[in-house]
Design a protein around this nucleic acid. Structure first.
Lengths: 119, 119
DNA sequence: TATTTGCGCAACTGTGAGTTGCAAAGAAAG
DNA sequence: CTTTCTTTGCAACTCACAGTTGCGCAAATA
């Protein structure tokens, strides 16, 4: 989420003041200030207008990605269904125990740390 | 703003239920329903996660622009599980902080319980 | 038939996006 | 050096709407 930095950088590149940009988006000047300081994010409609004004893609504006869209970590879980012959997303998704199975060590560390703190 | 249609289309392509998708985003099933029916839009953070899960760029997801890279299921990542007899995709890393944001109370409860146990 | 799964709608809640108001730093003019 | 104008950040407030719970209803599935 490089949005805040991207916004500030792109705005200065175009030599726009927060006030000027805000008026184009029909929001208050302070709203833009918040976005740039990471104290909030615009709603989707405003975000799209913002990308247009700054002449960048949504990915560039929000993620700071260069024109080429890079791939990302895939966290999906698919299973092959023999009856349908299709790949289906496994049901259930994430739950607490799935999490514990992967991060039990973090929980242990956390408990230990807090334990030490109290002793 | 093709977001609603895009979401519905992309979700079905991946054979995901609203419920399944919602759990991955740590939101309620009905929230996803609203998005698809144009009765609302996700916040920026959720939108980014959504794009990742659906394997599309933000521009594709929000505006419906054609992606440069054609995305299809890569069979090389599927592994055969002898015990279940199914082809499964290895689980990727999940976002620790997203989880904490949702289940911090559970963690607190857990820590407290264990703390009490030791005292 | 009963049960499960997937989805939509109504009603409610609370958060945070956007607002107004105040203040400060820097530049430019007088 | 003051005055004024521009640009910006922060605090406090409000209310729109993102997200929630709860209910109902099809369509599969057992």
């Amino acid at each position: 989420m490089k949005f805040a930095e991207q916004l500030k950088a792109l705005r200065s590149e175009l030599h726009l003041s927060q006030d000027n940009l805000a008026s184009q988006l029909f929001v208050s000047r302070q709203a833009v200030s918040k976005w740039e300081n990471g104290d909030g994010t615009p709603d989707l409609k405003t975000l799209v207008k913002l990308a247009e004004i700054l002449h960048v893609s949504l990915d560039t504006l929000v993620l700071g990605t260069k024109p080429a869209t890079g791939d990302h970590i895939d966290s999906s879980v698919f299973v092959y269904n023999p009856t349908t012959g299709e790949y289906e997303r496994r049901r259930g998704g994430m739950n607490f125990w799935d999490f514990l199975a992967e991060y039990w060590w973090t929980v242990i560390a956390l408990v230990t740390t807090i334990g030490i703190f109290f002793f």
